[in-house]
Amino acid sequence: MNQGTVKFFNETKGYGFIKDTQSGQDYFVHVSGLVDEIRENDAVTFDLQEGRKGLNAVNVKLA
């Protein structure tokens, strides 16, 4: 499980980005990868899964 912070999330369009706490990298997150509802600046835990355009955050839960 990785830890990070929700950098941006658009509820209307159902996607956003999570910044990994350790690596500082940003990962794409889609509403289909959420376990809990998230908002910008929420602390979250997540797994990474290979997507069409690189790694995506999945199983995203509030920390």
Score class of each variant (00 low, 15 high):
1 M>A: 12
1 M>F: 11
1 M>D: 06
1 M>Q: 09
1 M>G: 11
3 Q>C: 01
3 Q>W: 00
4 G>A: 05
4 G>V: 02
4 G>S: 02
5 T>A: 03
5 T>M: 10
5 T>R: 15
6 V>W: 01
6 V>C: 05
6 V>L: 07
6 V>K: 09
7 K>R: 13
8 F>C: 01
9 F>T: 03
9 F>K: 05
11 E>P: 11
12 T>S: 14
14 G>P: 05
15 Y>Q: 04
15 Y>G: 03
15 Y>N: 04
17 F>E: 00
17 F>P: 00
18 I>L: 06
19 K>M: 08
19 K>L: 12
21 T>C: 05
22 Q>M: 10
23 S>I: 05
26 D>K: 01
26 D>F: 03
27 Y>W: 08
27 Y>E: 07
28 F>H: 06
28 F>V: 08
31 V>E: 04
31 V>K: 15
32 S>H: 05
33 G>A: 08
34 L>T: 07
35 V>E: 15
36 D>V: 14
37 E>S: 14
37 E>T: 13
38 I>T: 04
39 R>P: 00
39 R>L: 08
40 E>N: 12
41 N>G: 01
43 A>V: 11
43 A>L: 13
44 V>H: 07
44 V>D: 01
45 T>Q: 13
45 T>N: 08
45 T>I: 09
45 T>C: 04
46 F>V: 06
47 D>P: 02
48 L>A: 03
49 Q>A: 15
49 Q>M: 13
50 E>K: 14
50 E>T: 12
53 K>M: 09
53 K>L: 10
53 K>F: 10
54 G>D: 06
54 G>A: 08
55 L>A: 10
56 N>A: 08
58 V>M: 04
59 N>A: 09
59 N>M: 01
59 N>I: 00
61 K>F: 04
63 A>C: 06
63 A>K: 15
63 A>P: 00
63 A>I: 12
